[in-house]
């Protein structure tokens, strides 16, 4: 990253910390994980928790056009102009990792059109355990898995589980119903991730997203320091 590089060109190339006009760009946080693990629900809960204190926007990467974006719009978590859907050509991991150009365009357009922004959440389409975000696209990434997907997922590892800046084990309220052992999931995650943080959450409970929201606030504090 060229943290102190100033541009007179029209657009930053990718990870530059500054926008073409020299101002600091928004912090970009990616949320990835398997299909149905609760990425969109986490994004919606984060928007509700943070929208009164931060200027934020969301980019979704849907497999079929705009379904996740439509969910966020229906839930009215943000004004519609703050939510952009990127189409991924049946390959969600390509759009967040190998060829990030459409996502970069989306975050730049959001900053141009509704900015200034403090935070942009980039949600991946549901994918597999190897799907991680390029460092050219996001500054930090959250990997969301859930207890109903099988309590052996933390043990299986893979780049999402082992390297994400935050691992979220979602839907803890379902653990007794699907026979998942939360203590085992937490221990396996700890073994895979060493010092990297893990959050167990249920969005069914009051303020269920608080730990993740606090983590996001800490990232933002570090970004703007």
């Amino acid at each position: 990253m060229h943290l102190d590089h100033s541009h007179d060109g029209p657009a930053a190339v990718s990870a530059d910390a500054h926008r073409p006009d020299g101002t600091r760009r928004a912090l970009r946080i990616g949320l990835g994980g398997p299909v149905g693990s609760g990425k969109t629900a986490t994004v919606a809960a984060l928007c509700r928790a943070l929208r009164d204190e931060l200027s934020l926007a969301v980019v979704t990467n849907d497999i079929y056009t705009r379904e996740d974006a439509e969910f966020l719009l229906r839930e009215a978590v943000l004004p519609p102009e703050r939510i952009t859907a990127v189409e991924t050509g049946a390959c969600p991991h390509t759009a967040i990792r190998d060829d990030i150009s459409a996502n970069l365009e989306a975050v730049e357009d959001l900053e141009d059109e509704v900015g200034p922004l403090d935070l942009i959440l980039v949600e991946s389409g549901g994918d597999n355990l190897t799907a991680t975000f390029s460092r050219g696209l996001v500054d930090a990434q959250v990997f969301v898995i859930d207890v109903a997907g099988g309590d052996d997922i933390p043990r299986k590892g893979g780049p999402g589980v082992t390297t994400a800046d935050l691992l979220v084990i979602n839907k803890t309220d379902l653990a007794p119903h699907v026979g998942s052992d939360l203590a085992r999931m937490a221990a396996d995650a700890k073994a895979q991730r060493a010092e990297l943080p893990v959050v167990l959450q249920s969005l069914r409970s009051e303020d269920g997203v608080r730990q993740v929201a606090d983590w996001v606030r800490a990232q933002l504090t570090a970004w703007t320091a």
């Binding site: 189409e87 050509g89 390509t94 759009a95 190998d98 060829d99 150009s101 365009e105």
Partner: peptide, 11 residues
């Protein structure tokens, strides 16, 4: 084909 210029999302 892997040149990162967005073509993968278009048919």
């Amino acid at each position: 084909g892997r040149f990162p210029a967005g073509g993968h999302a278009h048919s």
